[in-house]
Amino acid sequence: MTFSQATEKKLQDIWSRYPEGRKRSAVIPMLMYAQDEVGQVTPEMIAEVARRCEVTPLQVEEVVGYYSMLNKERMGKHHVQICTNIACLLTGGEELWQHAVKRLGIGHKQVTADGLISLEEVECAGACSWAPCVVDGYEYHHHVTIEKLDQLLDSIQKKVQ
């Protein structure tokens, strides 16, 4: 399996951080960066990471199943994560979630028909003092209101047009 130059460089950089004989340590970060490029975790990716990290594909598979950010299904180009954990719940996170579900017509870990946006109701994103919070990919948006959420979704949808 081949990756873009930038990703390949990143993967090698990650691989080099761990002592000889401990390359298994690179499995999770490698999967994260490889997934960022491919858009999901594929069987080929599992085999490739297993080969590079000197473990069996099953050992990688076990990891993929465990971590909630590793997805075997393809998520949208914009993976919009809405936190509804306590601090966000107290400040309107659930309303944001309901709004997004209604507006996009998709639910938890579902993707819009055009593949542009996917939604995920996430656990505490670490933005409690600036709640409620929405994360687009890796980009944090704080003190989000329904208007701000609409603006965000508008801008995502406009970008493609």
């Binding site: 069996t56 594909p57 099953l58 050992q59 598979e61 076990e62 199943g65 465990y66 971590y67 909630s68």
Partner: peptide, 18 residues
């Protein structure tokens, strides 16, 4: 042999074949 592993997390965890 190592043909069995564990996948998923929490209550939906299950045993998987290689």
């Amino acid at each position: 042999v190592g043909a069995l592993g564990v996948t998923n997390r929490g209550v939906v965890s299950e045993i998987v074949p290689n």
